[in-house]
């Protein structure tokens, strides 16, 4: 079947282009030599282990983790009620509110980072960490609202009324009936937010100070100084982390429904 072969070739070529570089990164990090090369000069795990020894990587990893987890959780705390209101109530000015809430997806991150630095951090003496936290929360918020809205829309509205008629007050109806049924949507929003925040660069570009850098920014800075395979090793490790989380999410929740 010539057609099948042609189609296989097209798919293979595209995948080679999209995934190939990632495979090269993995192997470049496995190098036994001291400079970045592919194919690597011999194989060793030393660069993968060396990554853990770099103090600044450890610090920035902790910061990035804090931003990704804390920012996403905060975004969910204010995003879930917002999604609920947008889906269930006939709010005045709904369209404007939707645009406001979606804005962080459209406005380029570098602009946000710069604006926060110049008008919050400097004049109001916010710490860089606080500014980063606010920026990452804002960045993740639209995803939280969108994903949770999608799962609310799949949920019938009458089950809440049924809960009320069986004796629930509004808050109980939400916690006992709505929340358990949108749990996977919330988890999906968390994962999407986590990955988005953790990999985010432009927002954090201006928002860094001595000892306060997110991991991707730290990697960029490291690359400018040294040309050894540790960044490759770290990149590969981070990629595995993201893929692992998403893979588990996909297997348990059918994550891709929400993205």
């Amino acid at each position: 079947m010539g057609q099948t072969w042609a189609s296989r070739l097209i798919i293979f070529t595209t995948l080679l282009f999209l995934v190939g570089p990632f495979i090269i990164i993995i192997f470049a990090g496995l190098s036994a030599g001291s400079s970045l090369a592919f194919p690597p000069d011999g194989l060793s795990l030393k660069w993968y282990l060396a990554v853990f020894e770099v103090e600044s990587f450890r610090q920035s990893f902790v910061l990035s983790m804090f931003l990704a987890v804390g920012g996403t959780l905060t975004a969910l705390v204010i995003g879930v009620p917002a999604a609920y209101a947008i889906c269930r109530y006939n709010i005045p000015g709904a369209e404007t509110i939707k645009i406001i809430v979606a804005a962080p997806i459209i406005v380029p991150g570098i602009i946000v980072g710069l604006a926060l630095l110049r008008y919050l951090v400097v004049p109001l003496e916010f710490t860089v960490t606080l500014a980063l936290f606010l920026a990452h929360t804002a960045l993740v918020l639209p995803y939280a609202v969108r994903v949770v809205s999608a799962s609310l829309q799949n949920l019938r509205t009458d089950i809440e009324e049924a809960a009320v008629l069986l004796g629930c007050n509004r808050l109980q109806a939400f916690t006992k009936v709505i929340l358990p049924n949108i749990r996977s949507g919330i988890l999906a929003a968390f994962i999407l937010g986590f990955v988005t925040s953790f990999n985010q660069v432009p927002v954090s570009l201006f928002l860094s100070g001595p000892g306060v850098r997110t991991l991707p920014i730290d990697m960029l800075a490291y690359m400018e100084i040294t040309y050894d395979p540790s960044v490759a090793a770290l990149s590969a490790l981070l990629a595995f982390l993201s893929i692992g989380i998403v893979f588990i999410a996909e297997k348990t929740l059918g994550f891709s429904r929400y993205v």
Binding site: E161, A162, L165, L166, V177
Partner: peptide, 20 residues
């Protein structure tokens, strides 16, 4: 009287059972 204190039962058209 709010709905949760009226003691009225309602069987919804599409039943409104709790899926979880």
């Amino acid at each position: 009287t709010p709905a949760n204190k009226r003691g009225v039962g309602l069987v919804f058209q599409s039943y409104a059972l709790f899926p979880h």
